[in-house]
């Protein structure tokens, strides 16, 4: 009898504790953080929006497709990495491919991408860098390697009738070095580069 009463007492304490914790940790804590975030860092807290031509065209952190309705890459824009999020860069369905290292689908996809990217850009298949051939973990990787950006310069310049040297200079100016000089890899933000490209092209 007494042990049953002790057990019941534990549950009663647990229930009341859970309710208080929910109010403090589940409600007050995120609201306070939201308040601080919206006051101190409103741009970041709201998703680092990027504007072009007076309208919001995306987020500096979320990659996007530069393709036509059929999913074919548009030659006038720098292209991002392959994406496994939905039909590609679906920001409401982040995902990697989860293909294993011996998966025949992945091996085929890499070969197909290598051929398609080489043909699209008019370069040798051996020159296509690894990030152009592989899908990212999130499917929303906003960045590409400087090598992949440089590889696309000739094709983009031709599609826009711009001097290749100008486009190349633009790419070089958009290369972000490693954080603190040694963390991560050098990158180029595709949306940022394309926005600058659109401005340059008038």
């Amino acid at each position: 009898m007494s042990s049953a009463r002790t057990a019941t007492r534990h549950y009663w304490v647990a229930l009341r504790a859970m309710l208080v914790f929910t109010a403090v940790l589940g409600l007050a804590y995120p609201l306070v953080i939201t308040g601080i975030g919206q006051l101190a860092f409103p741009w970041q807290a709201n998703g680092s929006p990027v504007t072009s031509g007076g309208r919001t065209v995306g987020s500096a952190l979320i990659g996007q497709s530069f393709s036509d309705a059929e999913g074919e890459p548009l030659p006038a824009w720098f292209q991002p990495r392959p994406s496994a999020a939905g039909d590609g860069y679906d920001a409401a369905a982040s995902s990697g491919s989860n293909w294993g290292p011996e998966n025949p689908d992945l091996i085929t996809a890499i070969a197909d991408r290598r051929g398609a990217i080489a043909a699209f850009n008019g370069v040798s298949p051996g020159d296509v860098p690894v990030d152009a051939l592989t899908a990212s973990a999130s499917g929303l990787d906003p960045q590409i390697s400087p090598d992949y950006a440089r590889l696309q310069v000739g094709r983009v310049a031709k599609a826009r009738n711009l001097p290749a040297a100008d486009v190349r200079r633009l790419v070089e100016s958009k290369i972000a070095t490693r954080d603190l000089g040694y963390l991560g890899d050098p990158t180029v933000n595709v949306l940022d580069l394309n926005r600058a490209l659109a401005e340059m092209d008038g």
Binding site: R81, G96, S97, N98, W99, P101, L106, P129, V130, D131, L133, T134, A135, S136, A137, S138, D141, Q143, I144, S145, G184, D185, T187
Partner: peptide
């Protein structure tokens, strides 16, 4: 040319 499938550039 590298184990970048499922990894982020940054």
């Amino acid at each position: 040319g590298g184990a970048m499938e499922g990894k982020e550039t940054r």
